[in-house]
Design a binder for these strands. Sequence first.
DNA 1: TCCTCAGTTCTAGAACTATCGAAATGTTGG
DNA 2: CCAACATTTCGATAGTTCTAGAACTGAGGA
Lengths: 92, 92
Amino acid sequence: MGDHQTDLQAVKVYKALGEPTRLKIALLLSKESDLCFTAIGEKLDSVAGSTLSHHLKQLTDSGLIDSRKSGSYIHYNVNREVAEKFAPYLMA
Amino acid sequence: MGDHQTDLQAVKVYKALGEPTRLKIALLLSKESDLCFTAIGEKLDSVAGSTLSHHLKQLTDSGLIDSRKSGSYIHYNVNREVAEKFAPYLMA
DNA sequence: TCCTCAGTTCTAGAACTATCGAAATGTTGG
DNA sequence: CCAACATTTCGATAGTTCTAGAACTGAGGA
């Protein structure tokens, strides 16, 4: 079996991707860089801000998505290294 | 965005892998072929048969794991095509 | 300072999931 | 046919997750 720590991250990444809204967010970010919170929300069908925040937290906690604060916005991006390792499907 | 049907399968596969016991089962099967129900159960730490059955169903429903009946046993294997597509990490 | 906008946290209900034990189903060997 | 074994289904329960709204924090602009 692989490294235990790595398997723990794999579970987190896969759990994050195993929900339709979050997979959609990850796919959006794989195609367009640096989207911010509001921009992501606008591309989804009616998701409350609190719900979006919750989803983005799971994605960033898993390491699959990075966030970067710039002014009063937070920009999100797929972490390519993590994506390539666990779910290159995202980058296809 | 990719094909919608494909994204639906992606969610299923990732949801299946986003649970520690099921990831472990998938990793076991990626290293040893044709394990049957009982053999898998023995390699896990105390999981009731009914629970194992439930996990295997999710893995097979996603398409990630194939099952083949032989006599009174059911043998399980990773579907390499699906694994390569969505989670090549399993085969690493 | 005050207002607005971006994003988070809290709370809570509804829906879903993991888990087990017991009962059921199906298959093989005697 | 019967006993034994492999696997599934059922029913219940504890815990988790999704979701939203309301309240909150923090930054920037007027």
